[in-house]
């Protein structure tokens, strides 16, 4: 099942399927090893429009809600 990252539930895992953004966003995500095919887990969500925190491998990354809306995840 695919979901938008910002709609994932806590502790849900999935694989990044698509990043709906310009080149710049793709490059930035890429530099933090958020690429298509990467497995991530949602650690926490702040308020509705707040950032999400995802776990990837051994690190965590905070992602603003606007960016999180552009990331499509294949949820397990």
């Amino acid at each position: 099942m695919t979901k938008i990252l910002s709609e994932m539930q806590r502790a849900e895992k999935g694989i990044i399927k698509q990043i709906r953004g310009g080149k710049e966003l793709l490059a930035r995500m890429d530099s933090l090893s958020l690429y298509i095919g990467k497995e991530i887990e949602l650690v926490s969500k702040q308020s509705k429009r707040g950032p999400v925190v995802v776990k990837l491998g051994n690190t965590q990354v905070a992602i603003g809600s606007g960016i999180a809306q552009k990331i499509i995840v294949d949820v397990k």
Binding site: Q60, V61, A62, G64, G66, I67
Partner: peptide, 10 residues
């Protein structure tokens, strides 16, 4: 104004 996008260290 871009959005937060940062690594969170252990």
């Amino acid at each position: 104004s871009p959005e937060i996008f940062m690594e969170i260290p252990p």
